[in-house]
Design a protein around this nucleic acid. Structure first.
Lengths: 162, 162
DNA sequence: GTTTTTAGTTGCAACTTGCAACCTTAGATA
DNA sequence: TATCTAAGGTTGCAAGTTGCAACTAAAAAC
């Protein structure tokens, strides 16, 4: 475990390798999706995903190790363990939704269900896209790569630019 | 190849499994990132990523197979092959950026470079997040899962809701 | 016509995966 | 109290996947 992944790390200046170290594994996003849908127990993941026991055990362990899930023993039944999303885990929602939207657009064409809605008006959320620092939506033609050194001083807090 | 992935497909109503069939493989997102950065040739991917030749060959083939990259032989030097992003490939940008931002926030702390900027003002793009159909930014507390059947009629074109 | 460059393929060893069977601890039942 | 069942694992094995190094094929350079 690990040897394959460590190489990815120091290849380039990019958050991607460290993200992929956990989330690049085959079942990680599926487990995350189940978590977002409220699944919390080992056997429920097992049934929902059709994953092998040992792999699920291993993946849950790795997700916990990386602070994406939290392992909480139930106080009322000490056999049961709850795997809950941490804040770090919740922060993966945009990435997951974006991948899901892409898969839905180009994949088998099966509409996803259930669907994320805005609690206020019960309407589906918007398609995820890139925005400028001031909120204007950006298409690929509006973008450029720039060396960080050339924009260091005018950078605005809250924008990461990557 | 493929046997492992087909199972993911029909597990749930979700675009995620079909997205992960290609992009869930260990090197796919790294190759995609290199493509977004302008890398187009076999040997350049090889050097930039430090990936094994046979794996790169295999992954490029799969990305082409899935219509994410296009294999274009150069007319001036017929040894050379260009791997170019298709529209389907470009559409993965939000997912990649979102993952990258997450990795940058929680990973090794190394700032990504180069950085995506708005061509108009040369400022870094905003952090990717979820928005309501009318553009309001949404946090996780503002969201709910809803069965597609309950919102089928009021659904707005351009919103996918997943 | 020999060498170099680009984009691969092949063989092998090491690692990872999936499946089935087993183990461990805690509650439930009698 | 002993036994049964449920929840969450671990272990062993066969099959599949990966990485490395060495080899090949075709086109360009010298």
């Amino acid at each position: 475990m690990g040897k394959l992944h460590e190489d990815l790390r120091d290849v380039v200046d990019c958050g991607l390798p460290s993200a992929l170290e956990v989330m690049g594994e085959r079942w990680s996003f599926m487990i995350l999706r189940a978590s977002f849908n409220g699944i919390r127990h080992f056997e429920d993941f097992l049934v929902q995903l059709g994953i092998a026991r040992n792999i699920l055990s291993n993946r849950l362990g790795r997700l916990v190790e990386h602070g994406i899930l939290q392992r909480v023993p139930c106080p009322d039944d000490k056999r049961r363990i709850e795997y809950r999303l941490t804040e770090k885990g919740f922060d993966l929602l945009p990435a997951m939704v974006s991948l899901r939207q892409w898969g839905e657009k180009y994949g088998t064409g099966v509409p996803s269900n259930p669907v994320l809605v805005d609690r206020q008006d019960r309407l589906p959320i918007a398609r995820i896209q890139l925005h400028a620092h001031d909120g204007r939506p950006l298409e690929y033609e509006d973008l450029d790569w720039e060396d960080r050194a050339n924009i260091g001083q005018i950078e605005v807090i809250g924008n990461c630019g990557c």
